[in-house]
Design a protein around this nucleic acid. Structure first.
Length: 716
RNA sequence: AGCGGGGUGGGGUAGCCAGGAAAUCCCAUCGGGCUCAUAACCCGAAGAUCAGUCGUUCAAAUCGACUCCCCGCUACCA
């Protein structure tokens, strides 16, 4: 029996866990964990919610909550989602956990003591209007090399040169546009540069890592390591345990991954908070305990470089990562998952709608182990129906129902030696795949055993044997039951819920996770009464095809349904800090708010905008307009010099979709310009599709223009 | 711009790191079998110059170079 430590990347508590997270970082460690438990190994699997990241504060502002409240809300939600999905952690808490905080502070002091942290004065741009120091990313100015006007503080996008904020000419704050001053602040730095060589040495024998992980990490190291600041000017987060730094907090990047250790410490404490050092050491100082970290590819350097650096800098001889099987990204219909763009499916919704195992199966077969993969509902349904239901589910069901009907119990007969061989090699190969974190291969191999089962039954034809020789028939069925039992075990790490059902249907008592991998070869007891079986999995209806798939035509046909036009209500209007003609609007679309830039300063005053209903193109690719993100475009008509907003009925609720338009996928700006939109003969706005004028309507009502422009006025 | 990843029968994918009779699985197509099973299962057929060019090699989807497309990232938003 050995010990396995599993660290799972800490999810941000700024939203519900979605299928991308689950397939990328959570399902794989759960499969791994379940397998090892069945092998009799002791597993410590930890993670928690990251509550201190900037995304949390940003999201909190949007929802009008304090960051702690928001984080706690999503933390609770996600704990439940994991549980419902069958993903179980030994310890799952949050960065607000008092023990986490206390231990992080201890580690901070320890690193200070070992000389890996030092204090240095750094000059930081400070925006007095926003009242905060600005990270490099949040300052812009003219590039001193190529004189590009909107170079960022970390890098000039135009010439690609790395930048420092103090080099920029005419600095400004990207948020508000005012000019920052430089202030001197003391910050703590982690001496990463000193660990470059040791890390290279450590990584030298990691050839068994996934190629993309290893490549990326080695490249990163080759690029050289710079010391990194580990504190920042903010008041949300963990306090620095050294006097005189009340206005600073420990940087999230530095603190969150310490959670792998803090959670282990927490686990090794009794109710009174007394630490059992030996218990902790058995996982963290035990050379025989392998440490695995599961995460998405965006997280690789933190786990293959920064975290190992910190662990070794503690100088306690703690275990370094053994493997970091990072996954690539799971995309959704070809797009990156993104909450803000509505490209997301939360686990909560999935478990309400489907059997978790159906989704676990789909994820396990498509997870992005070595490259990005694509999640589509169609594919999910197809794989569920034609593999899970038709191959595995069907094999078990035909076996059990035939046996139950004709024998009523597990017959007494010998196991077919061919089948025994097939079971053994499946067990062995699936085990090897899982141990090497090749989960996709593992489940594929498991499915082959089910396929073997179907072939076996077909070849034996027990329905014929029944008439010819009841003895032969019994042998076939007994063998099929043995295969079913093996399938229950083999699939248990992947599909725990259905394996449990099958386990009990085979007359085995208790929980399958208490069974061991080797039990797959223990013959089922003859004479066990069988219940009338229920199918293990349900067939799913193919997704409704509301429109014919639009692939056939090469030229994208102009149809309204490719546009996502919605009613927006202006909440706030401001001048663009860096442009003469642009204004920046904050617009409510019901569910969400968006920031738009519009070139209407010469035509409308700021006051005129507020409270107005407008028409917004919501599926335009977001673009930066003179430094400010514009997440859509408002529609206005122009006739000569006169520019007029489109005027939807005041009764229309923000967020209402214009009739005929859909939440279509994102389009590029040039594609949008291909549409001819204009004011029709009756003075109402619309689009020309083909040769027909189709008026825009919302809730059946026409949309006019603010200044009653005449027919033919162009809209954009 | 730089870096990283990808381009495999009609669609979606595996194989590539450790080169070897041209290739996995699912769907779609065609033919056959079976009727125990959630019209499920089983067998068979058709279909790819493995993006392109050049090179290394007895041998390349697999290694190297270049080109063309797609996607992602660009460490203070893990």
């Amino acid at each position: 029996m050995s010990k396995i430590f599993i660290g799972v990347a800490w999810p941000y508590a700024n939203g519900p866990i979605h299928v991308g997270h689950m397939a990328g970082c959570n399902l794989p460690p759960d499969i791994f964990r379940r397998y090892h438990i069945m092998r009799g190994n002791e597993v410590l699997m930890v993670s928690g919610s990251d509550m201190h990241g900037t995304p949390v504060t940003v999201r909190a502002e949007k929802e009008g909550l304090r960051p702690e409240e928001l984080a706690e809300k999503y933390h609770q939600l996600n704990v439940k989602a994991f549980d419902d999905f069958g993903v179980k952690f030994t310890e799952f808490h949050s960065t607000e956990d008092p023990d986490h905080i206390a231990i992080v502070q201890k580690l901070f002091l320890r690193l200070h003591e070992t000389g890996h942290l030092y204090e240095k004065e750094m000059e930081l741009p400070f925006c007095s209007k926003c009242d905060r120091t600005l990270p490099d990313r949040y300052v812009e100015g003219e590039c001193p090399f190529c004189h590009y006007e909107n170079a960022r503080g970390d890098q000039c996008e135009e010439c690609g040169k790395l930048m420092d904020p103090d080099l920029l000419i005419n600095l400004r704050c990207t948020t508000c546009g005012s000019t920052p001053e430089f202030v001197k602040r003391n910050h703590f730095f982690f001496k990463l540069s000193a660990l470059e060589e040791p890390l290279k040495k450590w990584m030298a024998d990691k050839d068994y890592w996934r190629p993309h992980v290893l490549n990326f990490s080695r490249m990163f190291l080759e690029g050289g390591l710079k010391d990194r600041p580990v504190t920042r000017d903010t008041t949300y987060g963990i306090k620095i345990p050294i006097d005189g730094h009340d206005d600073k907090r420990i940087y999230v990047w530095f603190e969150a991954f310490m959670g792998y250790y803090t959670m282990a410490v927490k686990w090794a404490m009794d109710e009174n908070g007394n630490l059992d050092q030996a218990k902790l050491d058995s996982f963290w100082k035990n050379p025989d305990c392998k440490h695995y970290y599961f995460l998405g590819k965006d997280n690789i350097p933190f786990h293959t470089i920064f975290w190992p650096a910190v662990v070794s800098a503690l100088e306690w001889d703690l275990n370094l990562p053994y493997d970091v099987p990072a996954n690539a990204f799971l995309k959704f219909g070809g797009q990156q998952f993104s909450k803000s763009r509505g490209v997301s499916v939360s686990i909560k919704d999935i478990v309400e709608e489907y059997d978790p195992d159906a989704m676990r199966y789909y994820m396990a077969t498509t997870m992005p182990e070595n490259r990005d993969a694509d999640f589509t509902w169609e594919d999910f349904v197809t794989r569920n129906n034609s593999e899970l239901v038709a191959t595995y589910g069907n094999f078990v069901h035909r076996t059990l129902s035939f046996t139950q009907k004709n024998f009523g119990e597990i017959p007494d007969a010998p196991l077919n030696p061919e089948a025994e061989k097939a079971i053994k090699s499946a067990l062995e190969e699936v085990a090897q795949h899982i141990e090497k974190c090749e989960f996709k291969m593992g489940i594929k191999r498991a499915m082959e055993l089910a396929r073997f089962g179907n072939q076996y039954i077909d070849a034996q034809a027990p329905w014929k044997q029944l008439k010819a020789s009841r003895e032969d028939c019994a042998a076939t069925l007994y063998t099929s039951i043995c295969i079913s039992k093996a399938l229950a075990i083999i699939f248990a790490p992947y599909l725990p819920f259905s394996s449990q059902k099958l386990w009990n249907a085979l007359g085995e008592d208790g929980q399958i996770y208490e069974a061991s991998w080797e039990d797959a070869l223990v013959p089922p007891k003859s004479g066990t009464k069988l219940e009338r079986p229920e199918p293990m999995f349900k067939k799913l209806d193919p997704p409704k095809k509301d429109e014919p798939v639009d692939e056939p035509q090469k030229e994208p046909k102009m149809t309204l349904d490719k546009l996502d036009l919605r009613i927006g209500k202006v909440i706030e209007a401001n001048d663009h800090p860096n442009a003469d003609k642009l204004i920046v609007l904050n617009v409510s679309l019901g569910q969400e708010n968006r920031q738009l830039c519009a070139g209407l300063k010469e035509h409308y005053s700021l006051e005129e905008f507020v409270g107005k209903n407008i028409v917004v193109v919501c599926n335009l690719k977001p673009a930066k307009l003179r430094g400010i993100m514009s997440e859509g475009m408002l529609l206005a008509a122009s006739e000569g010099d006169v520019v007029s907003l489109l005027l939807p009925p005041e009764s229309a609720e923000p967020g209402t979709q214009l009739d005929g338009t859909t939440k279509a996928k994102q389009i590029e700006f040039p594609d949008f310009l291909k549409y001819t939109l204009e004011v029709g003969h009756d003075g109402y706005a619309g689009a020309i599709i083909g040769s027909k004028f189709i008026p825009f309507t919302v809730d059946g009502k026409n949309i006019g223009t603010d200044k009653n422009l005449g027919p033919g006025a162009k809209i954009k």
